[in-house]
Design a protein around this nucleic acid. Structure first.
Length: 116
DNA sequence: GAACTGACTGTAA
DNA sequence: ATTACAGCCAGTT
């Protein structure tokens, strides 16, 4: 069912999964980061790292989601090094005390599933 | 329903 | 370290 009854939603289907993902991301403490895979796993969606990306892209701004705290595996920024998005993310992370070095963050800043 | 796409990941060259 | 490639699973076309 493609939520055709929902009035103000724009064709969102995996609502539960997206909400779970958003919830996990919102729970990431300031100054820390998590990986897509770990977020998905913590949301009860093992193996759906990509879905995490989808959820993030599709996330409404009204949620004020800390999207910048979500990085690729090994604490890598999932955007091209020269991309404005990448720079923005790095800036936001540094603003909360996370050292971003060449699109990378220290392992110590990355938190595991159990801490999510 | 097949094919394409992706804010992913891990392995190999 | 970089690039390629193959799994991966859902959502979109």
């Amino acid at each position: 069912m493609r939520n055709s009854i929902l009035p103000n939603r724009e064709t969102v289907s995996g609502d539960a999964a997206l909400e779970a993902i958003w919830h996990v991301i919102s729970a990431i403490p300031r100054g820390r980061v998590a990986t897509y895979g770990d977020v998905a796993r913590a949301a009860g969606l093992p193996g759906r790292a990509r879905l995490t990306g989808y959820a993030l892209k599709n996330a409404p701004d009204s949620l004020n989601l800390p999207w910048h705290r979500v990085l690729g595996a090994g604490g890598r920024v999932s955007f091209p090094n020269s991309s404005p998005q990448h720079r923005n993310q790095a800036r936001l992370l540094r603003a909360e005390g996370v050292a971003v070095k060449n699109g990378r963050v220290p392992r110590s800043a990355i938190i595991g599933v159990d801490e999510l």
